[in-house]
């Protein structure tokens, strides 16, 4: 089986400071990979290198494209990479306002990716937008409202709908539950778990919250100081951590 994405020796420095170093892993279709670590551990740098937002200093990110099979997205042309990011890829930002157009209605936000790939039938676009609002538990009657009138949790669900409407094959998520109230987080996690299961989504989720990976991720990578210190099946890593840092991480969560 071909990996959906194959990351090899990704390294990114900021001057003398190491963002992430020599990170390698494969993700297969239908898998959800969690990447945990404290802030400054390099997990966000790694995510942005994989999603094409940052250019790594070294390494490759080979993605199994729909049209042309495995391609290194680091060296492909910018138009090709931008095309991937509006078709096969999706990116859920921690802050919904970074991933939404706040001056555009909910329907327009969900419809944008459809229009970006050529949808030109207003009625169809709107029907799909309404369908997706319902799938993320937003009342269809809000389709013409701007996200500025939505709660934080609704904004995040709208961002997810906007990303998933074109059926991406890989979803990058950067702290998707960060900054939300605990009860709102729980609802969002339930929703994400349902979507991952129903759509067979492949995803890479960066978080500092072990509850998120416990619920969503099959696999887990633990990062510290730009390095991967532990890597394995989520349950295995969390229940029987091998690395001292992971043990600390897990125990500190259990004590909370």
């Amino acid at each position: 089986m071909t990996p959906l994405i194959s990351v090899k020796d990704i390294t990114k420095s900021y001057g003398a400071h190491i963002g992430c170093a020599d990170v390698s892993f494969d993700l297969y279709p239908g898998e959800v990979m969690g990447i945990v670590g404290e802030s400054g551990s390099g997990k966000s740098t790694l995510l942005n290198c994989m999603a094409g937002h940052l250019r790594p200093d070294a390494g490759s990110v080979v993605f199994d494209t729909r049209g042309h099979g495995p391609r290194d997205t680091v060296t492909m042309s910018e138009p090709e990479r931008r095309m991937l990011s509006r078709t096969d890829w999706a990116f859920v930002h921690q802050h919904a306002r970074d991933g939404l157009r706040m001056g555009v209605s909910a329907g327009g936000n969900v419809g944008e990716r459809l229009m970006a790939v050529g949808a030109r039938h207003y009625g169809d676009i709107r029907d799909k937008a309404v369908d997706w609002l319902e799938r993320v538990e937003i009342d269809a009657g809000r389709v013409d409202d701007r996200p500025t009138t939505f709660s934080g949790g609704m904004q995040q669900r709208l961002q997810i709908a906007r990303n998933l409407v074109t059926g991406p094959r890989l979803v990058f998520m950067d702290e998707p539950t960060g900054g939300l109230d605990v009860s709102v987080q729980a609802r969002l996690l339930d929703l994400l778990r349902g979507l991952v299961r129903d759509m067979g989504l492949s995803a890479i989720i960066v978080t500092h919250d072990l509850a998120v990976v416990r619920l969503l991720a099959n696999r887990l990578m633990v990062m510290k100081d730009g390095q991967v210190v532990e890597n394995g099946l989520t349950d295995q890593v969390l229940d029987d951590p091998q690395h001292a840092y992971t043990q600390l991480l897990v125990s500190s969560v259990l004590q909370v």
Partner: peptide, 18 residues
């Protein structure tokens, strides 16, 4: 330069929805 013009239709979409 990349012919990414989906946004123009978002503007027209907003017109119709409103």
């Amino acid at each position: 330069s990349l012919e990414e013009y989906g946004l123009m239709h978002v503007k027209l979409y907003e017109d119709i929805s409103r």
